[in-house]
Amino acid sequence: MKGEDIFVRYSRQIFIEEIGLEGQRKIMNAKVLVIGAGGLGSPVIQYLAAAGVGNLAVADFDEVELHNLNRQIIHNERSVGVFKMESAEQFVKNLNHQVRFIGHRLKIEAANAEELISAYDIIIDGSDNFATRYLINDTCVKLGKPMVYGSILGFSGQVAVFNHQGSRNLRGIFPEPPSEENLPDCDSLGVLGPLPGIVGSMMAHLALNLITGLPVPVHKLTLVNTLSWTFQTVDF
């Protein structure tokens, strides 16, 4: 793609004084890993690909199921039965062929987390269970990688940036993971489709702020409640 076409494509970002050409270059050179291509990962992948993140990696081992489609917007009816990572790759290619998509069809485990995470500048946690969240968090702390965190359930969501330039991490607010037994989850209590869109968009925005050197909140957890339509920030 010619330089003038690149400028036109990203002009609405470049026109923002705080981003400009230099910020767009940073976006196009960034290496971002999105863990999970589900409810949160879908809007993150969509907006980072649209923004022109040069190296966009996605790690997921699940297949698309019909019940995913109320919220996992990068997938469609033809994706049912396809691995989410492969469906995400097709979505990104259709949206922005300039983005280098790196797919990892695997489950994040202690045996592979460090090798996987070490290759990227920013880690975005779109996982759906506490064991994986803490594994990602602890690996990011060990490797000195900033982590954008999000979680959703029903009408409620949480967003935070952890381990940015040595800032506190997930264990700073939740020292130990709760017992998984009898914990509520989206499979049992559900989630309204736009909620992960809201939270995931916030996560994508925070990732772009990190890439371009714009301010991000640290030592703060943002709580989103779309039933009462309230947004609160908790310091930790």
Rank of each mutant, 00 (worst) to 15 (best):
L210N: 09
F130I: 08
Y47P: 02
E4S: 13
L214G: 04
A57P: 00
G103A: 14
N169A: 15
I173D: 03
K142S: 14
I123G: 00
Q232S: 10
V64N: 01
V141R: 08
V159M: 05
K84H: 13
A59F: 00
F61Y: 09
Q46V: 06
G154R: 13
V58C: 08
Q90L: 12
I122N: 02
A110I: 10
G197C: 07
V53T: 07
H75S: 07
L21M: 14
V82H: 06
Y134E: 01
G157C: 03
E4I: 15
R12N: 13
M1P: 10
I108D: 05
G81F: 05
G200V: 10
N96P: 01
Q72A: 11
G52W: 09
K2W: 00
L208P: 03
A49F: 06
I45G: 01
I73C: 10
I19N: 04
Y134S: 02
L227P: 03
L69M: 12
V80K: 00
N55S: 04
S151Q: 09
A51T: 01
N55C: 02
D128Q: 06
I211W: 05
S151G: 15
L106S: 07
A110H: 11
E65V: 15
P178A: 09
A207I: 06
N209S: 13
A51V: 00
L33R: 01
K26H: 06
R133D: 03
